[in-house]
């Protein structure tokens, strides 16, 4: 069971872990598998304000580039500097060491719109059909 039940998930394959008023986020195991070897991650700047659904980072593989969208609105409070030298952390540990950033939520109610693990797994199941 690779999709932790305490996480929330977006349709665009971001995971969200609530840490009080802040969330930590990354891309899902499914997303990293689709992308292949990640070679570079463009992270947002700390302090930057984002709105739910806006692009906040890009993840590059050798032959593709994908946008990562903000699952909630708020202010970027921390980014995963380790990805600068080791983008492969996303492939090796998408849900833990490969996290992208933390966001101080401006509207925690937005979390409600996200899926739980079971719904997300159903979602990706429908994609591979």
């Amino acid at each position: 069971m690779p999709y932790p039940s305490e996480f929330k998930y977006s349709k665009e394959h971001e995971w969200v872990k609530r840490e009080d008023g802040t969330i930590r986020m990354g891309i899902t195991e499914y997303a990293q598998g689709e992308l292949g070897d990640v070679v570079y991650v463009e992270l947002p700047q700390v302090g930057h304000q984002v709105k739910q659904g806006e692009g906040l980072a890009t993840v590059e593989s050798v032959k593709s580039v994908s946008d990562v969208f903000a699952p909630v609105s708020g202010k970027i409070s921390e980014v995963n500097q380790a990805l600068e030298d080791r983008p492969e952390l996303i492939n090796q540990s998408a849900h833990e060491q490969g996290w992208l950033c933390c966001i101080e939520m401006s509207d925690p109610a937005e979390l409600e719109a996200l899926m739980d693990a079971a719904a997300y797994q159903q979602h990706i199941g429908s994609l591979s059909e």
Binding site: V39, Y40, V62, K63, S64, V65
Partner: peptide
């Protein structure tokens, strides 16, 4: 670094 280029981006 081809992800910068027009055929991908």
């Amino acid at each position: 670094l081809q992800a910068r280029e027009q055929h991908i981006r």
